[in-house]
Write a protein that binds this DNA or RNA. Structure first.
Length: 317
DNA sequence: TTTTACCCAATTTTTACTTCA
DNA sequence: GATGAAGTAAAAATTGGGTAA
């Protein structure tokens, strides 16, 4: 016998048969089977009770012609009829407040279409719950995500309709997509390809990884700032020493304006040629000193204000 | 203050694929 | 080479908590 899906469970629930009733809806649910919502320890103990210790029994069921999804679907369908929710069933994935809404309104055409699709491309009488989205569906979702990474209810419903999915599925997809890669692809690619940074694939550019990059970048940025600060202080000291030097000070006409060329970083004087020459010659050692370039952000989005960063919580509100 | 709807993070489950005996 | 067990990555789904309206 296989995993939790295969177990014949006894579920007793009072109140709303939803997945999100943990919030405010009164509910009493008793699950006498190793269901998905159990934690790992519970799972272990239950599975120990009900299944053989080796994993092969459950993972290869489908290969041996025992379709666990079919079992699951059957359970789910039954759940739907009886109003008893199995957390492991895909149909029970509509939730709490959401499920109420979806069951009443949204979960109509899209839901039926989804069901019909499932029965269409499956062989048997009992419709198998297909969890994987088709390439076309993923493509459309991806394209939509590129345009905007959140959906309002209308958009979600329309998209669900278009893709023959349940609105909840679309919602979950967007949620997972946001979590999986919160950066636009091109930006993620830039970061991944940038030298000297932690190496990982774009696919694994999770928020955790992003935080690592963040940390790395900030560290370097801080180091660069410290270095630049040190250099500027040194420069100030040199300039002060120069100013205090009587011989030089005599030769320099006061109204000399020093400007720095932004491109070559050389000091240029706008004063008369004689005094300018004196100043520039005096400052030559400083001005001609190869200046370390101001650190160009390795992290392309790090340079932008914090609130522009897509994952930043503040930017959402 | 409560309710609702939404989002997120963390986690679990499922699927598809690879490796290896 | 075919087969199945085991391992693994990725996607789909669930759960619980926070927050704004």
């Amino acid at each position: 016998m296989g995993d939790k899906n295969d177990g014949l469970g006894l579920s007793l629930s009072l109140g709303y048969a939803t997945q999100r009733n943990h919030h405010h809806q009164p509910s009493l649910k008793l699950n006498l089977m190793p269901l998905a919502s159990q934690n790992k320890h519970e799972k272990t103990s239950w599975t120990n009770l009900f299944q053989s210790p080796d994993r092969t029994g459950d993972t290869r069921l489908s290969q041996r012609g025992i379709d666990r999804n079919r079992v699951s679907a059957a359970v789910a369908d039954h759940d739907d009829e009886t109003g008893v929710s199995s957390p492991n069933s895909t149909l029970s994935s509509s939730s709490g407040k959401r499920s109420e809404r979806e069951q009443i309104g949204e979960e109509t055409e899209a839901e039926r279409a989804s069901c019909s699709r499932e029965s269409d491309d499956e062989d048997g009488d009992a419709s198998r719950k297909k969890l994987r989205l088709s390439k076309e569906q993923s493509l459309v979702l991806e394209e939509t995500f590129k345009e905007h990474n959140t959906l309002n209810p209308k958009e979600r419903l329309a998209l669900a309709k278009q893709l023959n999915l349940r609105p909840r599925q679309v919602e979950v997809w967007f949620q997972n997509r946001r979590a999986r890669c919160c950066l636009p692809f091109e930006q993620a690619k830039e970061i991944v390809n940038s030298p000297g940074l932690l190496k990982f694939s774009i696919r694994t550019m999770t928020k955790l990884k992003q935080t690592e990059v963040d940390c790395e970048y900030l560290k370097r940025y801080c180091e660069n700032l410290t270095e630049e600060n040190r250099r500027l202080q040194k420069e100030v000291q040199e300039l002060r020493a120069l100013k205090l030097s009587p011989q030089l000070y005599m030769h320099v006409n006061p109204p000399t304006t020093l400007t720095m060329c932004p491109s070559c970083k050389r000091v240029v004087s706008s004063a008369s040629s004689s005094s300018a020459a004196a100043v520039s010659s005096a400052l030559a050692p400083i001005a001609s000193t190869p200046r370390p370039q101001r650190p160009v952000p390795i992290n392309p989005w790090a340079a932008m204000p914090i609130h522009h960063r897509t994952f930043d919580a503040a930017s959402r509100s």
